[in-house]
Simulated assay, not measured.
Amino acid sequence: MATKDLSQYNIESVPSAESMRFGIVVAEWNYEITSALAKGAIYTLKKHGATSDNILVKYVPGSFELPLGAQFFAEMENVDAVIILGCVIQGETRHFDYICDGVTKGTVDLNLKYNKPFIFGLLTTNDEQQAKDRAGGIHGNKGDEAAVTAIKMVHLKQNFSI
């Protein structure tokens, strides 16, 4: 769950992202929400030292396409981590379940296949207001959390490589 107060993430211990390179793949569907998530992620990456040149953003039509867009980053760009941002709002059909399951499984598979952090930033909400609340509203911005997670996971991997 997105939180307005990132203190539970020990924000003081976030390493510098100065030498890190990030891909961000953003779903165009529910763009008002997903663009807010992307802005939050970019802001947080820069706050912790990432440069604009080391933050690459690409868009896919919808959330179901997020894993493939993320895979393209892994195969075609030299990135240390990929942040996956989308929003699926519950409707009257099972479509919600299929999309959420597909993106979740796809993200897990990418983490293991490429041995690099693919950060799950998919909002799965019951209604549009819940999504807004988690994309810069009363519950903070899930994009911020995804960025902190990306930085910490890249740092963890770098510590294993030393």
Rank of each mutant, 00 (worst) to 15 (best):
Ala17Ile: 02
Ile162Ser: 14
Val154Gln: 02
Ala36His: 04
Asp5Cys: 06
Lys47Arg: 15
Val79His: 07
Phe64His: 08
Lys113Pro: 00
Met153Tyr: 01
Cys87Ala: 13
Pro67Thr: 14
Ala147Arg: 03
Thr107Phe: 02
Asp133Trp: 05
Asp101Gly: 06
Leu56Asp: 09
Lys39Phe: 10
Gln158Phe: 03
Ile42Gln: 15
Glu12Leu: 11
Ser19Gln: 13
Ala50Ile: 06
Ile89His: 05
Arg21His: 12
Tyr59Ile: 04
Gly69Cys: 04
Asn141Val: 03
Gln8Ala: 13
Leu56Met: 12
Met20Thr: 00
Met76Asp: 13
Ala74Pro: 13
Lys47His: 12
Glu12Gln: 12
Gln8Asp: 12
Val88Arg: 08
Ile55Leu: 01
Ile33Asn: 04
Gly121Asn: 08
Met153Asn: 00
Cys87Phe: 03
Thr93Tyr: 05
Gln71Ser: 10
Gly143Val: 05
Phe72Met: 09
Gly143Trp: 10
Met76Leu: 13
Lys157Asp: 07
Pro67His: 14
Glu28Ala: 11
Gly140Phe: 08
Thr107Val: 11
Arg94Trp: 12
Lys116Ser: 14
Lys152Pro: 00
Leu85Arg: 02
Ser63Met: 02
Ile89Pro: 01
Ala36Arg: 05
Ile55Phe: 00
Arg21Ile: 10
His139Lys: 13
Pro117His: 05
Lys105Asp: 06
Asn10Tyr: 06
Pro15Asp: 07
Leu56Asn: 13
Glu75His: 01
Thr104Glu: 09
Ala74Gly: 15
Gly121Cys: 08
Thr34Leu: 04
His95Ser: 05
Met20Asp: 10
Thr3Phe: 08
Met76Pro: 00
Val88Gly: 02
His139Ile: 00
Pro15Phe: 05
Leu56Phe: 13
Asn78Leu: 13
Ser13Cys: 01
Ser19Phe: 07
Ile55Gln: 00
Asn54Tyr: 05
Gln158Lys: 12
Ile162Lys: 15
Thr34Cys: 07
Gln71Val: 09
Tyr43Ser: 15
Ile119Asn: 08
Asn141Lys: 10
Arg134Gln: 15
Pro15Glu: 09
Thr124Ser: 14
Val88Ala: 02
Ala146Phe: 04
Leu156Lys: 01
Lys157Leu: 14
Val57Trp: 01
Gln129Ile: 11
Tyr31Ile: 08
Asp127Gln: 08
Gly121Ser: 09
Trp29Met: 02
Gln90Arg: 15
Ile33Ala: 03
Asp53Arg: 11
Asn111Ser: 08
Val108Glu: 11
Gln158Asn: 14
Thr44Met: 14
His155Pro: 00
Gly40Trp: 10
Val154Leu: 01
Leu112Pro: 06
